[in-house]
Amino acid sequence: MIAFQNVSKFYENQTVLKNITFTVRKGEMAFLTGPSGAGKSTLLKLMYLAEWPDEGDIVIGDHHLQSLRMPEIPMLRRNIGVVFQDFKLINNLTVFGNVALALRIRGVSEKEIKNLVSEALKKVHLRHLSDSHPRSLSGGEQQRVVIARAIVAEPVVILADEPTGNLDPNTSADIIRLFEEINLQGTTILIATHNRELFRNTGRRVLKLDGGNLVAEEVG
């Protein structure tokens, strides 16, 4: 579950997010949309504490971010799988190494890592590229690696920031289908995108941001 309660974020004198209140239920897949600069990325960053809210409270699963202490931040992040627009893959690690990193951080045994990574790569149809390096992959393939890394440790929530921003329409549709499959297994997913085609006719809830305000909530 994701819950925002009167959350605001300021940069110097500028209001980036103003009094944002919304909830994404456990197991729900929702979209966050709005024009560039609307505050979508900032809103996602507040959830995994790459940025700190200036006002209000955010709840992610069992974590109340307002009362979270510094040593608890890694635990919060381990409950969230993040899919970044710019992938954030480590180039000197293989596809396997990149996905396994999420598990190594959690102290999972090497034997278990082998099985879990293999399973995650199978889900994103990339098992055959396990030994490749990110630079040798296409944009769509790299995005799938990022998704595999986000789901491998079975997080409570998956946040995706413009996951199809660099991809062609067909690959974008594949990625969304992949999220649908992951969501079917009960994972809460919030996807930030400015591309309306992604959520058109999906029947999913869409939260609209504009100028740092949550202006509308509709069904796609």
Binding site: P74, R77, I105
Partner: peptide
């Protein structure tokens, strides 16, 4: 850059 990624994945300071 690599450290920033590891941080976002939930690494502790010790790691």
């Amino acid at each position: 850059e690599e450290i920033e990624i590891i941080k976002l994945l939930g690494a502790t300071k010790g790691f």
